[in-house]
Design a protein around this nucleic acid. Structure first.
Lengths: 145, 145
DNA sequence: ATGATATGCATAGCATCCTATCTTTTTACA
DNA sequence: TGTAAAAAGATAGGATGCTATGCATATCAT
């Protein structure tokens, strides 16, 4: 009958923080013509190395269909382009368009700004503690159950 | 040109932890016929006090249309029922069905289990630290920008 | 009392996510 | 070499979440 302490339901806080971050960041990114989910793709491709859809999905840790749809929207919006892989007819390489590259500095600035707002009042140590505890959570959940 | 330290992008870790929690929990809850988004609704209504849609949305902190759709699916699935408010023809009271009440113990167990897995290896102090840092993030983001 | 507001919900439209499947190519190995 | 297994994508189907709107009913202020 005893209720566990509220803090043992950490998932609730993680979820809520996650949604608030999106609510805060999305409108600003939308003003740039991009979305939060696209940021990791932009970041991964910004070095100019084209990547396959599968490798993007693996790096960014979303499922392949999620990445497929995300890339479709980004292609529709002129942010990425796909060029067929001559060595493998199933596959193509994804790369940023010049328009997307031009957005990178502003996008990065918004990303940093959103995080800074989330961490307002944190000492560097608190920030590092939060991240390392989250990494521990992620490690716990990332492996098969 | 200097890149900020990775840990200043705490949002990334928060998002990832959030998605992993869902991926872990959803299949188990699905086996019970419910979903993670429904848990807070079940928890809020479990005391038997009927609530309006708007008050549920406020308590659970999702937007009203989100709650409307969630309740629609729950109604479709026989988890909640709405009874019109005689005093206000715009509004109804939402309450759990007996079927939903019967699921509460198992649902609660899965909730606790998922959180326990996420926090595996955590000391009580680490757990509390994580939650209090997340609460600070939430407080930072919850107020208008 | 009545016209302006506020409130409670419903709907439309979209972006992410996920799982489950299917097709097309490649690869591997018997 | 030929067939089975693996890999890369595409698609279907569904749940959440959000913003923007619209409608009906209450409330309030003059």
């Amino acid at each position: 009958m005893s209720e566990p302490p509220l803090s043992s339901l950490a998932g609730h806080f993680i979820n809520r923080a996650s949604r608030l971050l999106l609510r805060r960041g999305e409108p600003r990114l939308r003003a740039l013509g991009i979305s939060a989910a696209q940021l990791p793709v932009l970041g991964t491709l910004k070095d100019g190395l084209p990547r396959t859809q599968a490798s993007l999905a693996a790096l960014i840790q979303v499922e392949q269909p999620t990445m497929a749809q995300l890339l479709s929207r980004m292609e529709r919006d002129g942010l990425v382009e796909r060029t067929p892989d001559p060595a493998d007819r199933r596959s193509s390489f994804v790369s940023l368009t010049p328009a997307a590259k031009a957005l990178l500095p502003k996008a990065h600035k918004e990303l940093v700004r959103g995080n800074a707002e989330a961490l307002k009042g944190f000492t560097d140590e608190e920030r590092d503690t939060l991240v390392s505890l989250l990494e521990k959570v992620i490690a716990n959940l990332d492996s098969p159950s």
